[in-house]
Design a protein around this nucleic acid. Structure first.
Lengths: 145, 145
DNA sequence: GCCGATTACTTGCACACGCCTTCTATCTCA
DNA sequence: TGAGATAGAAGGCGTGTGCAAGTAATCGGC
């Protein structure tokens, strides 16, 4: 007898809805950011997350938690962006095992350009999602936070 | 002037929250289903989606919409599951370009075994998410639908 | 009834990711 | 000072994905 809980089906349904909405939005964002700025969603997320930090820098572990990626993926992601001159690495002063990742001016420029794309696409994706009755309540919550 | 809309930041924040919650849950599910039943989340989703259809069958395009994957990814996903004997393909009678995918008895068995894992893991993931203040409102909505 | 356009699905290719191991530098604690 | 832990890089391996090109079947106009 599996869980014998009436809430089970509700949760499963909620999760399917969440996953569906997430996939829709991510898909739209991926295309828009890729087409307009040669950025993946992960790459945009890194720049965006760093921009929200005082000093626009963050350590690798924080970063991998922020983008929810493995350490190795984060290393490679940062390396890619570093290679494009969008961010740079430098050693922590206080703990020199740590490495800070910092957005460069050129990275800030790109972010400035990409944000409007991101925002309008997000808005569109959410608006479209309102056409799907199932997604409506979730969209409302996302918009009202 | 980028959208000049106060709702922009709210939307962006809502999206970040949605993405964070989604990533957490998917990660937990992925590990649990992989460890317990050798199924990825996508694979489980396919079986689950088919199980909700009359006759447990669906055409490829419906399926790729249901799991929100590209057609090519769906083809390969179905091929993998077919190779494991969990589902089978057969041509549409009326439109012979179309291909139906149907869950086999063995696929049904596996789904029966995997569902409890899925459900309890989902419950755990949502409960854990309640520890993160930001995620709370979203978790409430997911659980209450 | 035939030919181009469209649709349904598959396949070749490139790439990002996760897991793993190996390596170096640094910090901590006794 | 020395042993062990920690932060991160580097890279090999397997796998899943999207894109773009390809094949097969259907539809529409003439």
């Amino acid at each position: 007898m599996p869980l014998s809980d009436d809430a089970v089906e509700a949760r499963a349904h909620g999760w399917r809805t969440l996953a569906a909405l997430h996939a829709r939005i991510e898909d739209r964002l991926e295309r828009a950011l890729q087409a307009g700025h040669d950025l993946s969603v992960s790459e945009f997320t890194v720049l965006d997350a760093l921009s929200r930090q005082d000093g626009w820098h963050m350590r690798m572990q924080q970063l991998s938690r922020a983008v929810v990626l493995s350490q190795s993926a984060t290393t490679r992601l940062v390396s890619r962006l570093e290679g494009r001159g969008l961010l740079s690495r430098y050693l922590c002063e206080d703990d020199r095992r740590g490495i800070y990742t910092e957005v460069t001016p050129s990275g800030r420029d790109l972010l400035t350009q990409a944000r409007p794309t991101h925002d309008t696409t997000l808005k569109e994706a959410l608006t479209e999602a309102l056409d799907v009755p199932e997604l409506v309540p979730l969209v409302r919550v996302v918009e009202s936070l």
